[in-house]
Every structure is written in structure tokens, then in C-alpha cells.
Nucleic acid binder design. Structure first.
Lengths: 156, 156
DNA sequence: GCCTCATGTAACTAATGATGTTATATGATG
DNA sequence: CATCATATAACATCATTAGTTACATGAGGC
């Protein structure tokens, strides 16, 4: 099954925004992520509704971060995306009439719940600020390893 | 995203087989699961290749359990199905050139790995025998609660 | 031997959901 | 008022699971 990459994508966007002063347009983001501006706007809509970013139209418009990165977790972002389902596998039927199937559902559901809980709590432990700091670390590391080399790339 | 229910389905099948003496035909299973015999055969193919069940053609043919239920775990069954992906979400790109995306991937991958590991180990803790015992318990419980009532249903 | 039953498998259809694209409306700025 | 940028609907695309049809293969029963 193909995997939903909206969380990954929206985090990518937010971190790029964090490294920029003014507003960023959907056009610019789309270019950096090699996709379409409409896709960006769709991703950002939920974040705007939750007050994590602001959008402005017209000249000099675009998207701006309006939250404290140190208090927003990846789980918050996931929630803002509408809590898409985390697991790719599930039970054939909910509330089956068949007792055999009920027994299967029971044991599988328990495992599913545990895995989902763990993932959610992991996401809840990481703030956007922590992620942003990690990006800075990585940039610094690359700067060191490339010092003196030609053609150091800037992040896309 | 729609969830892959093959594990759930195949467990349902196996437990029905465990409650039956002779071989069970795909036709019968399909009827019990309200689906098509071909779907059943597709599900069972992997289990046969792993030696958990045997299939026989012709008169009196069908599917038979040929493993020790107490040594086969749900994880083994999952593996026999070809290890379908467990998570519905994932990273936009593997091995991105962009450092920002690399940072996102890194933190998300870690969480994904943890959740997958937990789910797999949970599945590894449950044997088919345990599940089968649970089915018996449930049947007994229903038998008690329905004693004297009319129209007690048999499992489908 | 031949008929029937059952699996084995390929090929096609349907349904679902993420992603990409086009088109049009709305609003802000100079 | 022309331009820029978001807002959103509508539609196309793609991947994947599930369901269906069709035909081949092999095992008994008679």
C-alpha cells in the first residue's frame, strides 16, 4: 500500500519556513518540494485552521509561522492534518457476527492500539523547535565537512 | 486509506479450519467469509508455501492445517503473507538530497521503526493455539449466556 | 477412460484514497 | 485597476486491495 506522506511533507515545509524571514509563497514551497502549489495549500489548510500558520493574499503575501515552535509537537501537526490513519492493516470487519472473527479482531485490535499509541506518543515528544535545531546541526556538520570544497549546496 | 485486511482474513480462516476435522474447501471458506473462493486461495497460497497448511485437489480435497498451532505465531502468518507494510504513513522520499527533509525523515523513521517493532513483537507473542483457545472460551461463554434461549447461533 | 470436483493462476474489473492539474473566484497591494 | 497570491472545486492519475471470470491442472470415483 502506498504510504501517506502528508505529515512528512508538511514538516518539510514548516522547517523551510522556519529558516526564512518573511512569508513564503506556495509557489516557492512547491518548487522546493517538486510538486504543485495547490498541493501545498491543501496541506497547509489544516495548519492554518489550527492557528499554526497564517496565510496572506496579494503582493508580499504567502505563508508565515505564527506559533511557538517549542510548544508545537509533531503530533499536533498530525492532528491538524486530520489524524489520517496510521496503520496500513486492519480488521476485515468491525463488530462481526461471527465469534471466531470477533476473537481475531480482539487480539489484533489490541496490538493495533498499542502500536498506534506508541507512534502517537513518540510524535508527541518531538517539538518543531527540536526538529529545527536538528536541521541547524546538520547544516553545520555539512559546512564543516565541506569547508574548502567547491560547490557546497544550499538546502533546497 | 483503506486498510489491508489480509492478516485478519487469513486468521479467521485458520481458526475455522482448527475447529474442523477433515479438509475445508475454498468454497466453504468463501461462504463463511462472504467472499470469493479465489480470494481464499490467494490468501492461502503463502501459508502453503511456508508449510502451515496443505492443499489437495479433487474429491475430498481442500485445505488442511499441517502445523503445530502452539508454535506458530501471528507474526509467522504475517510473514507468510509477504510482510505487507504495517504503517499507512511514511516519508515523502527516501534518501533526499535536501538536508531539511533528511532531518524530517530521520526523526519520523525512528518513530516508525519503533511502532512497527512493537506491533511485530506483539504479533510474535500470540500463537494460533492461544487464539483458538480464546475462540473456545467465547463459544463456551455464549453457550452459558444463551442456555435455555431459543435460536442459539453457531459460528459462521 | 472419463466425469466431476477442487485447487492454481492469469487477467480483468471495481473501489478507494493520495497526489497532481486545471480553472475560477476572492482578496490584498501598489 | 492590474497584478499577485491564496481558496477551492473539479477532474485526472496512480497504486493497491478486493472481487470476478475463465481456463488449466490434477485427483478420485465410477
Amino acid at each position: 500500500m502506498r504510504r501517506d506522506s502528508r505529515l512528512s511533507g508538511v514538516l518539510h515545509i514548516l522547517l523551510h519556513m522556519a529558516r526564512q524571514d518573511g512569508p513564503t509563497t506556495s509557489e516557492e514551497m512547491a518548487k522546493a518540494m517538486d510538486t504543485n502549489p495547490v498541493v501545498i495549500r491543501r496541506l497547509m489548510a489544516g495548519l492554518r485552521d489550527h492557528g499554526y500558520v497564517r496565510s496572506e493574499r496579494g503582493h508580499g503575501g504567502g505563508w508565515t509561522l505564527v506559533c511557538d515552535l517549542s510548544t508545537v509537537t509533531l503530533r499536533d501537526i498530525y492532528t491538524a492534518l486530520g489524524c489520517p490513519s496510521l496503520l496500513a492493516i486492519g480488521n476485515r470487519t468491525e463488530a462481526p457476527g461471527c465469534l471466531v472473527e470477533a476473537a481475531v479482531n480482539s487480539v489484533l485490535d489490541e496490538s493495533f492500539r498499542d502500536a498506534e499509541s506508541l507512534l502517537l506518543s513518540r510524535l508527541g515528544e518531538v517539538t518543531l523547535a527540536m526538529l529545527s535545531a536538528d536541521v541547524r546541526r546538520r547544516l553545520a556538520a555539512r559546512g564543516r565537512s565541506r569547508r574548502g570544497e567547491k560547490g557546497t549546496r544550499r538546502p533546497t
